[in-house]
Amino acid sequence: MSTQSSWDSARIHAYVDGALDSETAARLEADSRNDTELAARIAQQRELSARLRTEYSPVLDEPIPQRLRDALMGPKSPTAIKPIGTARKAGPRRSWSLREWSALAAALAFGALLGPFVFRGSTGLPIVSEGGRLVAAEYLDDALSMQIAGTATEGTLARIDLSFRSAGGEYCRVFTLRRGARGVACRRDGGWSVEILDAAQLSASEPGGFRQASSALSPTMLSAMTTLGAGAALTPDEERQRLGSGWDAAPQ
């Protein structure tokens, strides 16, 4: 019986994983000393495990993000967390209307990739479909309503870059999502309507950081802002005033 054929992959794998009984393991070890091919196969499998651990283990030494530390504390009240399964099964309350699909198609034509942002499971969807339009939700809604442009701190999921008034008098804000897309949302009907989402400026950087490399606006964004008739950017003082009295357009 030649050694080459007597050790199948399954037993080599079991040996490397420490799952082979000691007697068989000893025989395999003895054979591997005289069989370079067998030794190479064992070494290859060991290297595979080592490379996988090297690749994925750095996270073990990373600080635990605040949201996970919060999650460890458990639900703050019985209603604070919806059961995940039911939340997800409920999904979108209804199918999308033609109008929403058109909005999406228009965004896609600009090179935007909405998928990862719109369909994001139960935790913190930043953009949702509501009343026939795409609106900011969760942390994006919070940032649009409460963040002064340029004051985002590290670890925030949405950053506000600047604010302006559209030709129609609405307040609009340019935002950047941590996951790598920039967009414009305008205040309308008591919510932030997402006018444009542009993922074309993606530049993969270190994981977890904002992927937006520059503060320059892409042609897509500039053209969207021109369409909106963007005026001069609001000053920080003007923004603070909005934070106090709300972003809804004053009656003209």
Partner: peptide, 19 residues
């Protein structure tokens, strides 16, 4: 596929576990 989704998943698991 990415760090953010992984922490989302960890968070969901923690929430489920505590429920």
């Amino acid at each position: 596929r990415n760090v953010h989704d992984a922490d989302d998943l960890a968070q969901i698991a923690l929430e489920r576990a505590l429920l």
